[in-house]
Simulated scan of single mutants.
Amino acid sequence: MSKVLNIRSGKFYVEHLIHSLVLHAFAYLIYGLGISIMTFHFADFGNTIFICFLLVTHICLYIAIELTRAGLAQDAGQV
């Protein structure tokens, strides 16, 4: 499905795939650290999950904005 959506893009499918794998690995790392913090009772459940969610969302948006500024995402917004 992702290959079909990126067919008009100037980038290769592998570039999109690697970028998405890096973002998911970062998200798993942050959520894993959050679960570890909750396991050892350093923080409560609600605040930890909320902070992890905000951190992952912020970093993903930051990366997307920086790629657009650098011209690496020239086709941003085109479908």
Rank of each mutant, 00 (worst) to 15 (best):
residue 1 M to N: 05
residue 1 M to G: 06
residue 2 S to T: 05
residue 2 S to L: 09
residue 5 L to H: 11
residue 6 N to E: 02
residue 8 R to N: 11
residue 9 S to M: 14
residue 11 K to P: 00
residue 11 K to I: 06
residue 11 K to D: 00
residue 14 V to E: 13
residue 15 E to R: 10
residue 15 E to S: 12
residue 15 E to G: 06
residue 16 H to V: 00
residue 16 H to G: 02
residue 17 L to R: 09
residue 18 I to D: 01
residue 18 I to M: 14
residue 19 H to G: 07
residue 19 H to Y: 10
residue 20 S to P: 01
residue 20 S to F: 02
residue 21 L to S: 02
residue 24 H to M: 04
residue 25 A to F: 02
residue 25 A to I: 04
residue 26 F to T: 01
residue 26 F to S: 00
residue 28 Y to L: 10
residue 28 Y to T: 04
residue 29 L to S: 05
residue 30 I to P: 03
residue 30 I to R: 02
residue 30 I to H: 01
residue 32 G to S: 05
residue 33 L to N: 08
residue 33 L to R: 04
residue 33 L to A: 05
residue 35 I to Y: 10
residue 35 I to L: 12
residue 37 I to N: 02
residue 37 I to G: 01
residue 38 M to D: 08
residue 38 M to W: 12
residue 39 T to Q: 06
residue 40 F to N: 07
residue 41 H to T: 11
residue 41 H to P: 00
residue 41 H to Q: 15
residue 42 F to G: 02
residue 43 A to P: 05
residue 43 A to K: 09
residue 43 A to G: 03
residue 44 D to I: 04
residue 44 D to V: 03
residue 44 D to L: 03
residue 44 D to F: 04
residue 45 F to K: 13
residue 45 F to H: 12
residue 47 N to A: 13
residue 48 T to D: 10
residue 48 T to L: 07
residue 48 T to I: 09
residue 48 T to R: 11
residue 49 I to F: 09
residue 49 I to C: 11
residue 51 I to S: 06
residue 52 C to A: 15
residue 52 C to N: 12
residue 52 C to W: 00
residue 53 F to Y: 09
residue 53 F to V: 13
residue 54 L to Q: 11
residue 54 L to G: 15
residue 54 L to S: 13
residue 55 L to C: 14
residue 55 L to P: 01
residue 55 L to M: 13
residue 56 V to D: 10
residue 58 H to Q: 10
residue 58 H to A: 15
residue 61 L to Q: 14
residue 61 L to A: 13
residue 62 Y to S: 15
residue 62 Y to I: 13
residue 63 I to C: 01
residue 64 A to F: 09
residue 65 I to K: 10
residue 66 E to M: 15
residue 66 E to Y: 12
residue 68 T to A: 10
residue 68 T to D: 08
residue 69 R to S: 13
residue 70 A to H: 04
residue 70 A to R: 14
residue 72 L to I: 06
residue 73 A to E: 03
residue 73 A to I: 01
residue 75 D to L: 02
residue 75 D to K: 04
residue 76 A to H: 12
residue 76 A to E: 10
residue 78 Q to P: 02
residue 78 Q to L: 07
residue 79 V to F: 08
residue 79 V to I: 04
